[in-house]
């Protein structure tokens, strides 16, 4: 029952998202400059991408992996800058490689020691981040460096989004969608029962690595907008919100993408209302509001529904209309 309600909701969300720009224009008297529109579009694209990919991270109980990987990207950004100068491509490739190395290091610590996942993530997170900070201070000491803007990877700087970034986000988004569609069955299997997947002859390691790569790619793209600290919120908040409304993975991924796009777009628009409100944090706040809403209101699963059901049960119990076996 709850399953069928999801599709209209997704459509409504998308419609609301599309209407948001003209609506905010007429309701709040907000002048939608070109920059605001570009940032809102970028936020929506990133939100959709990270929402869809984040579902797998959440379901695989790797919610905090995103946090570690986003911090781990920083030394890659710095090394990319040292080797190639301020070219976005080099910075992103560096970030991706560093982040991926961090992932391997977490796996190595887990495989060869008795240290548990939380501590392993923490070690990689803070060591890589410290390496990044040390390299950034080194870069700042270089006389010829035009290092302005590397800091934006730490805190995120949505206002710096330009059209080419949108094209990049859109292109990568399409590629990720394609990979998800092609390997849907494999991803689903490995997410819910990795042992069964391996037993069934699936190349578990390969699919696992591919899924992790998707997460790394998403994080790296999101760094510029949300920054290393808030990226984990972008990744998991839409997925957790979507999880409350449905029990099917297909619906969850699509809904998470829609919710993420909505949070990204509206966060960007709200932050445009006041020049002092930073975009990345605002997107996170909107995303969390969606989570809070979903946890309370989601039919069947939400807190409100559960309370109503409990009250009804109690009433039934009191009036002794308890059916046998119920």
């Amino acid at each position: 029952m709850a399953e069928r309600r999801v599709w209209p909701m997704i459509v409504a969300l998308l419609a609301l998202g599309v209407l948001l720009l003209p609506l905010s224009q007429s309701l709040f008297g907000l002048r939608l400059t070109y920059t605001v529109r570009v940032v809102a579009l970028g936020g929506s694209l990133l939100g959709a991408l990270s929402g869809a990919v984040g579902c797998f991270a959440v379901l695989r109980r790797e919610s905090l992996l995103g946090d570690a990987l986003s911090h781990a990207a920083l030394p890659g950004v710095a090394i990319g800058f040292l080797l190639a100068g301020r070219q976005l491509g080099a910075l992103l490739v560096g970030a991706g490689i560093a982040s991926w190395l961090g992932l391997r290091l977490v796996a190595a610590i887990l495989r060869t020691t008795r240290i548990k996942q939380d501590a392993a993530l923490g070690i990689v997170l803070v060591s890589f981040f410290a390496a990044g900070i040390a390299l950034l201070t080194y870069i700042q000491s270089l006389p010829e460096a035009s290092q302005a803007g590397l800091d934006s990877f730490i805190f995120g700087q949505a206002a710096a989004i330009i059209e080419s970034d949108i094209a990049l986000l859109g292109g990568v988004g399409l590629a990720v969608t394609l990979v998800l569609a092609l390997l849907w069955k494999e991803f689903k299997l490995i997410t819910f029962d990795a042992d069964f997947a391996s037993a069934g002859g699936l190349r578990g390691g390969l699919i696992d690595a591919l899924l992790s790569t998707l997460i790394v790619v998403t994080i790296v793209l999101g760094l510029q907008l949300a920054g290393v600290i808030l990226m984990v919120g972008m990744l998991i908040a839409p997925a957790i919100a979507a999880r409350q409304w449905t029990h099917s993975l297909e619906q969850m991924v699509v809904l998470a993408a829609a919710l993420g796009a909505f949070a990204g777009g509206s966060g960007a628009v709200i932050s445009a209302l006041d020049s002092d409100i930073p975009t990345g944090p605002m997107i996170i706040v909107v995303a969390f509001a969606l989570v809070a809403l979903s946890i309370t209101l989601a039919p069947g699963r939400g807190v409100l529904w559960r309370q109503l059901r409990q009250r009804e049960n109690r009433r039934n119990f009191r009036s002794r209309r308890l059916e046998p076996g119920a």
């Binding site: 959440v58 808030l230 919120g233 957790i240 930073p278």
Partner: peptide, 22 residues
């Protein structure tokens, strides 16, 4: 009962940090 431990942590601190930054 709706959110796992690690996910709850991953939700709570970006939110509070985001509020602090704002």
């Amino acid at each position: 009962g709706l959110v796992r431990q690690d996910a709850a942590l991953g939700l709570a601190f970006p939110l509070l940090f985001a509020i602090a930054v704002i």
